[in-house]
C-alpha cells in the first residue's frame, strides 16, 4: 500500500514538474476557460439588462458554462496529462516499471484535479468580479455537482487514454472531440424536456444530465435535488468502473498488438 502511494506520488510529481516548468502551459490552463467565460459573461450582461423574458434565467447560462467547463477541462486535464507520456515516448519506461495501471490512473486523476482547480477557480472569481455571478451561491450543491462532473470526466478520460494506447495517434483527436458529442445530449443549456421524447432515455443515461438538471433546480427553485445527485453518483461509480476496465483491457490489447514499445514514434 505504501509503495503504491509512493508510486502515485512519484507520477504526480512528474506531472507537476512539467506543469511548473512552463508558465505558458499554466497560462493556457486558465486562458481558454477565461475567454469562454468572457463571451458568455457579456451575453449574460446583455440578457440581464434587457428586461426580456430570458433575463430571469440569465444566471443559468453562466452556471452551465462554468459547470460544463469543469467536465470538459477535467477530461482534457486527464487525457492531456496522459498524452504527455506518448509525446515524450516514455510509456514503455512506465510500463516496464512496477507502476500498476490503477496507480497511473490515480496519478492522472490527481493531476486532472490540480489542473482543474488552477483553471477553474480564477475563472469563477473573474465571473464574480466582472459579472456579479457568484457560483458559490449554489451552496453545498456546487460540491456535489463538481464531484459528479469530475468523476464523469475521469471515466471518459480513462477510455480515451485506453484508445490512444490501443490505436496510437489516430485516436488522439478524441481527446478534444469526444466531449462535444455529449454537449447536446446531456442538456447543459436547456432542460431534458426540450429534447424529443425518444432522446430522453439517452439523456438520462448520461451523468452530466443529472448535474445540469440539479443546477437548474437550485438556481430556479432554490431546491437541491438529493435524489438526482445520488442517482448520478451511482451511475458515475458504474461508469468509472467501466472506464478503468476498458483502459486495462485496451492496454492488454496493445500488449498483444505490440504497440507499447514504439508508442510515440
Amino acid at each position: 500500500m505504501t509503495q503504491s502511494l509512493n508510486r502515485i506520488a512519484a507520477m504526480t510529481a512528474r506531472y507537476y514538474y512539467i506543469l511548473r516548468s512552463s508558465s505558458l502551459r499554466l497560462l493556457e490552463i486558465i486562458y481558454w476557460p477565461a475567454m469562454q467565460m468572457l463571451v458568455w459573461g457579456f451575453l449574460y450582461t446583455y440578457l440581464y439588462d434587457s428586461k426580456s423574458a430570458m433575463a430571469s434565467t440569465a444566471g443559468l447560462l453562466l452556471g452551465a458554462v462554468l459547470l460544463w467547463d469543469v467536465l470538459f477541462r477535467g477530461q482534457l486535464g486527464f487525457t492531456f496529462t496522459f498524452l504527455e507520456e506518448i509525446w515524450s515516448r516514455n510509456l514503455a519506461n512506465l510500463m516496464m516499471s512496477p507502476l500498476q495501471p490503477f496507480e497511473l490512473a490515480a496519478s492522472l486523476m490527481l493531476m486532472s484535479l490540480i489542473r482543474l482547480v488552477i483553471g477553474t477557480l480564477p475563472v469563477m472569481l473573474l465571473t464574480f468580479v466582472l459579472f456579479g455571478f457568484n457560483v458559490f451561491a449554489m451552496g453545498p450543491g456546487l460540491l456535489a455537482f463538481f464531484l459528479n462532473l469530475v468523476l464523469t470526466s475521469w471515466a471518459i478520460g480513462l477510455i480515451v487514454a485506453g484508445l490512444v494506447i490501443r490505436q496510437g495517434f489516430g485516436a488522439e483527436s478524441l481527446a478534444y472531440s469526444i466531449m462535444i458529442v455529449l454537449l447536446p445530449l446531456c442538456c447543459v443549456y436547456y432542460p431534458v424536456a426540450a429534447l424529443p421524447l425518444w432522446l430522453h432515455p439517452v439523456a438520462w443515461s448520461l451523468t452530466p444530465t443529472y448535474v445540469f438538471e440539479g443546477m437548474r433546480a437550485v438556481l430556479l427553485d432554490g431546491t437541491f435535488r438529493t435524489d438526482l445527485m445520488i442517482e448520478c453518483l451511482a451511475l458515475n461509480a458504474a461508469y468509472l468502473g467501466m472506464g478503468f476496465t476498458t483502459f486495462v483491457a485496451l492496454l492488454q490489447s496493445a500488449r498483444h498488438k505490440g504497440g507499447l514499445l514504439t508508442m510515440g514514434e
Partner: peptide
C-alpha cells in the same frame, strides 16, 4: 530494468 534508444526519458524534466 531496461534501456533503449527508442524509448526516451521525459524531455521536459
Amino acid at each position: 530494468n531496461f534501456e533503449s534508444p527508442y524509448v526516451a526519458l521525459p524531455g521536459r524534466l
